[in-house]
Structure formats: C-alpha cells, structure tokens
Design a binder for these strands. Structure first.
Lengths: 195, 195
DNA sequence: CCTACCGATCGGTAGG
DNA sequence: CCTACCGATCGGTAGG
C-alpha cells in the first residue's frame, strides 16, 4: 500500500523492508540496517512488528502472486478475442509493476529465498498462472488470430518483455505510462518492423 | 569453457563455483559447499585455486560482458540493414546464453554483488553496449525500416525477451535452438498477430 | 591440500 | 522499544 495516508509502524517497517530487499537483495539486506532506516536503535525492536525476516518476503511474494491470479481470472471471464486478452494481460503486468514497483521487483527476483513449504506453494501458483496464460495464447493460435508459434516461446517472450519496467521507472521518464504500454503491446503483437 | 577436455583443477573449481552461484545465488553460495562439490575437505583449500569468492564472480561477469561487446562490434562493422543487425543481435544473445547458460545466468542476476571499482566498470560496459544497441534501433527507425517506437522501450523489450532462455534450457526441450530463435525473432520483428 | 583458527556479521530470543 | 546476548555461519589467513 504505497500511497495510503496514515500508516501504522508495521506498515512502515514492511515497506522499508521491501525497499531494502530490492536495493540490496534479500540476503544482503540486514535487519540491523532495516532497524536504522525505520528509526529503531536495535534490530531486536523490529520483532515487535514482524515475526521474521522471511515473513516480509512471504507477504510480498504472495500478495503479488495474488494480484496476477486475480487479474487473469477477470480476463478469462470476459468474452473477448485472444488478442484482446493478451493485450489485457500485458496491461495487467504493466499496471502491477507501476503500482508498486518495489514489491514487484522483490517478487520477481527474490522468491527463491522462500523456505519450504512456501517455496513450493509459490512455484505452484506461478506454474498455474503460466499455464492459464499459455492457454490463452494457444487458443489464439488455434483460432488463427496468432501465427503458428511455439506457445511457451511466445509466453516467456511476453512475460519477460514486461520485467524491465521497474528499471525504467527509476530513470528519468521521458515517456508516459500509456505510450510505453502502447509501444510494448505493438512490438509484441505486430512487431518492430514496418509492414 | 564448458566443453573442453582436460580441465585443470582451477577450471573445475571456477565452473563448479559458477554453477553454485546460479543455483543458490552468489551470497547464499558458501565456500564450504563449493569445497565439498569439488572434492576438497576444507574450504581453505580452495584458496590455492582462487584468490577470493569475488574473483570468480568478476571473471564470469566480465567474460560475458566481453562476449557481448565483441559480438556487437562485429555486427556494427557489416554493411547490413538495421533489421538484419537486430536479428544478428538476437542471435548473439541466444548463442551466448546457450553456449554457457550457467555463466550467463550469473552474469545476468548476480553482477550487483561486485564490489567497487568493478561494479562501476561493469555498469559502464553495460551502458556502452546498450547505447550501441539502441543506435542500431534508432537508425532503423530513421530509415523507415522500423515503426516509430520509443527506442529504449524497443531496446529493453528485446534485451529481456532473450533472458528466459536459461530457464527453458533446463526443462525438457521440445524445440530446437533454431526453431526457438526463429520464433523469438519473428515475434519481436513481425509480432505474434497474423497479418 | 589439511589443520587450526579468526574476527565479523547474521537472524533471532529472553526479559524487562 | 531497549539491554544484553546467543549460536551459527561466513570468507579468509597462517603455517606447514
């Protein structure tokens, strides 16, 4: 909740933790530095607000997973063409990434430090999401909307195309969100080359 | 050198280290586990073959950076269309990734753990590479070969599209390298949609 | 390549 | 929220 107004100390701690995880990586982020950043003298004081370092990582990973799962569920229910659904999925990824780019970066890059059984749960959710995304691509190929392409290649090309946005988001942005979304969608659906 | 025949112990140690860095991440990879994997009882014995843990990371990061820099230098010298150059750049990324996917994964994901001045040197090389790649895209837009697209958006869409290959490389591969390259190039240059 | 070991740092707990 | 502290683990060195 990056834009809410009256934040509890717990929310502040969780947000600062996410930012630290993003900046240094989960393992390199120390509880002592986190304590400093939220104005606590001792790392031990953090444990009034969180159960463990990993609890924060779990929250970030599963909250973001749920954003994607809820998003694709809505998109599946609409009676649209496959091309329209893929466009909406691209828009979903861009929206999630720009809503809270800190947490989506941690979700993308640090999930592997989850311990079991959370790691397995997370991977199950991810595989499920990817399968549902792949099915949309495959029905577009079957219906003739899309070229005959290996669906896994198309899937990962789209999924990764959308993963550099947080990097761009930190730089000077000479481009509006809408224009960026238009350019990415255009490249993936109709290509960079002129007809 | 993943396929050479008579490897020195030093080469074996560096290779095993790269694999461990990929599997666990640089920070989570311990010198004690590396020692076990190469048949040494003590982590301290590793230091006959390497100067430090970071030395291995540095070698991986800069060796791969040089592969890309040498690749783009060759491509720039040829008198080809911009579209052909972009195709060759995509092929370069796929080739580097599949030649030694372990080391390219570490290069992609772990460079941030380089210490100064290596981190700054690395980022300078990366920025230089990206600028040269961007220039090729921009001349294709200027010449009318490519659609009017924000060149940074096009650049990162291409660069990240090619970063999931190591993931695919670990799974069962139902697809040849050549077919994958064809599908990725087709998606990025002419899009997923049928005309 | 091993033995022996070091100082630093880690996440986390007990108790108030 | 702090004081005091713990056991574990880390990368690395000295010396042979």
């Amino acid at each position: 909740m990056p834009n809410s107004q009256k934040k509890t100390k717990k929310e502040l701690v969780f947000e600062a933790a996410g930012k630290l995880f993003m900046e240094k990586g989960y393992l390199a982020a120390s509880m002592r530095e986190l304590a400093e950043r939220v104005g606590l003298e001792q790392a031990s004081s953090l444990y009034n607000h969180l159960k463990s370092k990993e609890e924060v990582l779990r929250k970030i990973c599963f909250d973001n997973a749920n954003k994607f799962i809820n998003g694709i569920s809505e998109i599946e229910q609409q009676s649209n063409t496959s091309a329209e659904k893929v466009k909406q999925l691209i828009a979903l990824h861009i929206r999630v990434a720009t809503d809270d780019f800190t947490s989506v970066t941690v979700f993308n890059d640090e999930w592997r430090h989850l311990s079991e059984p959370f790691l397995s749960n997370f991977l199950t959710l991810r595989r499920d999401y990817e399968n549902r995304f792949r099915k949309i691509i495959e029905s577009g190929i079957a219906s003739g909307e899309f070229k005959k392409t290996h669906s896994t290649v198309a899937l990962y090309t789209i999924l990764t195309s959308v993963r550099w946005i947080h990097y761009w988001y930190n730089e000077e942005r000479e481009l509006s969100l809408e224009d960026m979304e238009k350019d990415i969608t255009s490249m993936l659906l109709t290509g960079l080359e002129k007809d």
